[in-house]
Amino acid sequence: MEIGKSKKKELVKIKSIPYDEFKNNDYLEEMVRELNENGTNVIVGVLDEAINWGRGNSLWPLTFATSCCGIEFMAVGAARYDMARFGLEVARASPRQADFIMVAGTITDKMAPVLKRLYDQMADPKYVIAVGGCTISGGPFKHSYHVVKGIDQILPVDVFIPGCPPRPEAMLYGMMQLQRKVKLQRFFGDVNKKEVSEREYEEMMKRDMTANS
């Protein structure tokens, strides 16, 4: 089923920002094409749209910051930039209640397992934004003995925001990109993972535990 161009625009609309202002439209259009390749059930599709509207407009960040970028992340929440406008201000300190994690700041070797654990503690569906040069590639500390060269080695990253540190505007842009991405995903059969029974879960836990020791 071919999806019309106007329809596509509607899907990834962000209020009061022209579609062409976003730089990665090709990528998202490709994503939509792939998702719709086999066609979608009408009812599921409509439900999907409703749910994604909700999900996309209600992304709660985890309060997480390791270094410089964290201060800019605070600035995004503060008076001048005010991410509350997008409904993003409900920063949760508990990873269980957060929807996405802004990895703001360098991730070191010692921090990497902690970050992974935080990510694992978050409830599905969850997203990752890599903020700043350090999280993308190691940045200015690339040659250090104790810095992870890009968090995509340990986490599935959805949006990268370059900068050292990125300006608050850049962070808002990145968060809007995440909103667009979320709004395009298919919730049923894709983002919501198959539910596991309690026994399976216990087994998985056991496997995880033994793998670590």
């Binding site: 390791t66 270094s67 700041g105 360098t106 070191t108 010692k110 921090m111 902690v114 200015p140 500390f141 040659h143 250090s144 003995y145 104790h146 810095v147």
Partner: peptide, 22 residues
């Protein structure tokens, strides 16, 4: 140490103009 970036070691491999960035 959760944000120990090894700056001092990094500096030993950089010229003076480069170290000031860190």
């Amino acid at each position: 140490g959760y944000i120990h970036r090894g700056v001092e070691k990094l500096c030993e491999g950089m010229t003076y103009q480069q170290t000031i960035g860190l």
